[in-house]
Design a protein around this nucleic acid. Structure first.
Lengths: 359, 359
DNA sequence: GTTTAGCACTCGGCAGCCGAGAGTGCTAAA
DNA sequence: TTTAGCACTCTCGGCTGCCGAGTGCTAAAC
């Protein structure tokens, strides 16, 4: 969009003013805001032209102007001043991320953090690009009818399950099962656990009671679970704080849309790591988002895993502020998750309990 | 409260009518509803007396009457007709509970179920009355710097953790650790894991790198976790469907109150298993609940565990309906959790994968 | 040609008013 | 004790008219 310098300044002022006050901004306000020597009349003319270009809109005659979706787009692309994150915010984010040991809940807690910091609903999802497989099986014998399955996945997470049986097992059988499962079921993806593989294993062990099937079933369950990319929304209630969602029905429509995890997975996502993607109002494919904006940022952890974290809010959003925070958090997540959790032991054996370096 | 039979009938009619229509009910409506041969004038007199007794209220002159909190209380205690759960509902509940294998998420899913069925926000919490201890430790050697801690708790759940070390370990050390931990750390509560116990253990193993402390730390973490009674709220959005929460600020106040887990734990709870407790409006201690009602029901699982599941809604609630559903679900939870998860193996070894009897 | 001051015009929002309708309490009769 | 009748009260929705903010246009100034 090729605009005169003055039009740019005016458009920027209108956007930033409107974002703050939530009220149509008039020529006089712009003039006051600019405090340069342009009169309101001139600005009126310029604003009329900006409206003709489709960048501004008038709710009705004799109201001020508000930015159109296109106006926001131009603002985001060309006029927005990149904002640095404040040191206060950085500190809050850092400490919040540090306190959370890396683990299952980290990503969703990051979502909650974003939501709290931006006062918009946030969603977070993590997906694993590589194939998940089992690296190792162990069976722990408890008593004649009970044992524990412990599996180590190739992504270093451990899953277990306690199995109670009505038929007896003995430690030898478990040892045998372990060696066979470690030989045949490790390093393969879920699809390759076929019924013929299971049947063959049953024959090899001489299993007539279905214990192999139980273990195989657990394995499949695990691998399927790992494949599903969990998405989560937090802070949906934040929506209610913003005047554009004062209309309960409107708010509810959006909230119920966001609560649907399958829909969530379809939200716009950036192409490369660290990139921020801003989708404004009608640019969204989903009808429910037609008058909301979505900002997402992607973070990668090695080549294996990638995640998306984003927020949904009214088109009238503090784009630069939100984007800055979002990208800072994404960076933090990236490094935190990449650093892994190698445990540094204190050679004097003086690790205090509850220290953060435990785990 | 000693009321004439006629007053009782009138009070009941007013409550039930108001619950349905959300509008003050007038003498004429009551007369029509009763279709007995009492005239509206008589009913007016009776209603005036009921108001004098504090059971009914008038939003303003020339509006009908609505029940006061006390009115609801009398209704719930004396006038409410116990409602049977419909077979449809029973089916929905049964299938929803059956599909959920017993496990971590069962209780909170039950909460979600309640919320869906009642259209009110529901909360669920489970607490363990007995003392949680570790029944058994196992350490699985992975490689020279890696091993897995597997612990079996006395409540039959299994927890694990993968430990990466910067100093090497060998299988013999792990065996030694296992026997010592099984000897000294099993069957004791979290408070009894003292630093002197840890120090003694370190001496016994000859640990100079703090590996004992790591394992002990994990143990303590586990036991503390088990002690915390998790509470969870679901379906808070349901509030918005009810006219009394059309006022966004009001709804938000309540929602943010409900989101606070520590507050949640303080909600009224029944004294004995299966009992239903109904707390109406100002009977609630918390100011935020002053114009809402809370219905809770308690379920016990053996002597070990007990849980509470309840809903929060406007004082204008279908008490009997909600209570019926709630108690049905509580019963279901009770039996489902008590039945445990003993695994029935098919003696022909034909267990189909994904069958519900796996796990 | 561009900018600016001035002015008439438009339109939403708000306060005030009015009438309709619902429901009451009181009185007097059954 | 119950009931019919009636005057009274109060809310709600619609209508009106005023106010102010902001505009577009015109004509003068730069």
């Amino acid at each position: 969009m090729n605009l005169s310098e003055r039009k740019k300044v005016i458009l920027r002022t209108v956007v930033e003013q409107y974002v703050q006050t939530v009220e149509p901004v008039g020529s006089k306000t712009v003039a006051a805001e600019l405090s340069s020597s342009i009169s309101s009349a001139t600005i009126r003319n310029e604003m009329a032209e900006l409206e003709a270009l489709g960048l501004l809109e008038q709710p009705h005659t004799s109201a001020g102007r508000i930015p159109s979706a296109l106006g926001y787009r131009v603002y985001v692309n060309e006029l927005m001043r990149r904002q640095k994150i404040s040191t206060d915010d950085a500190q809050v984010i850092n400490s919040a991320l540090q306190n959370n040991r890396a683990g299952e809940g980290l990503v969703s807690r990051a979502g909650a953090l974003v939501s709290r910091l931006t006062t918009y609903p946030a969603y977070a999802m993590a997906s694993v690009t590589g194939v998940t497989t089992i690296a190792r099986f162990d069976f722990i014998f408890i008593d004649s009818h009970t044992f524990i399955i412990v599996t180590l996945l190739n992504n270093d997470s451990v899953k277990n399950k306690l199995i109670h049986l009505t038929t007896p097992v003995d430690p030898h059988l478990l040892t045998k099962l372990a060696s066979i499962f470690n030989a045949s079921f490790t390093g393969i993806s879920e699809e390759r656990i076929t019924s013929s593989l299971i049947a063959a294993t049953e024959r090899a062990v001489g299993d007539t009671v279905g214990i192999v099937a139980v273990i195989a079933g657990f394995t499949i369950e695990l691998l399927c679970e790992a494949k599903a990319t969990a998405a989560e929304v937090t802070g949906t209630m934040n929506l209610l704080n913003h005047p554009e969602y004062r209309d309960i029905d409107k708010a509810q429509r959006l909230i119920s849309y966001l609560s649907d995890n399958t829909e969530l997975a379809r939200l716009p996502s950036p192409e490369s790591s660290g990139e921020i993607k801003i989708t404004i109002g009608p640019e969204n494919l989903a009808n429910e988002l037609r008058d909301s904006s979505v900002i997402t940022v992607r973070y990668d952890v090695g080549d294996e895993m990638q995640g998306i974290i984003g927020i949904v809010g009214p088109t009238r959003m503090e784009y630069s502020k939100v984007a800055a925070r979002l990208s800072y958090i994404a960076q933090g997540l990236s490094t935190l998750l990449a650093s892994g959790d190698k445990l540094q032991l204190n050679p004097e054996g003086k690790n205090k309990l509850g220290d953060d370096d435990i785990g």
